[in-house]
């Protein structure tokens, strides 16, 4: 087994644990920032990606970036799903409160229009 394989599997496992146990909006943004910075550095020093890739047993720097991209997409996707879920819950609570409030108002006022 190559070092790169170990690292990728470890990363995926870390993501799973992170997602289910200690996800935090601040940490999410930290991860984005680190990835952005890494992107800038790789653009500035194109050879760097190849040397890092070789260091952990991946042939080309482009492959390393591709793997990193997949991990980033996965991470981003999960962060978004979780955000949508939160918004959905807020909408549910609002719609529910409104439905109940309307019914109570409607029945207490004498001029009920059917």
């Amino acid at each position: 087994m190559y070092l790169s394989q170990l690292i990728l599997i470890a990363l995926i496992l870390f993501f799973l644990i992170y997602i289910f146990y200690f996800r935090d909006a601040l940490l999410d943004r930290l991860v984005y920032l680190v990835l952005m910075l890494a992107g800038i550095i790789v653009v500035l020093f194109p050879d760097l990606s190849t040397s890092i890739a070789n260091l952990i047993g991946i042939g080309r720097g482009a492959d390393l970036i591709f793997y990193a991209f997949i991990m980033y997409t996965l991470f981003n996707n999960i962060a978004q799903v979780s955000q949508i879920k939160k918004i959905e819950h807020q909408i549910t609570v609002l719609v529910r409160k409104r439905a109940i409030a309307e019914a109570i108002e409607g029945s207490s006022s004498p001029e009920k229009d059917n």
Binding site: I91, V95, R98, A99, E102, A103
Partner: peptide, 12 residues
């Protein structure tokens, strides 16, 4: 009769 202003689903 209660009315949801938009469709949320049976559970909601």
């Amino acid at each position: 009769v209660l009315r949801h202003v938009c469709n949320l689903g049976q559970g909601a």
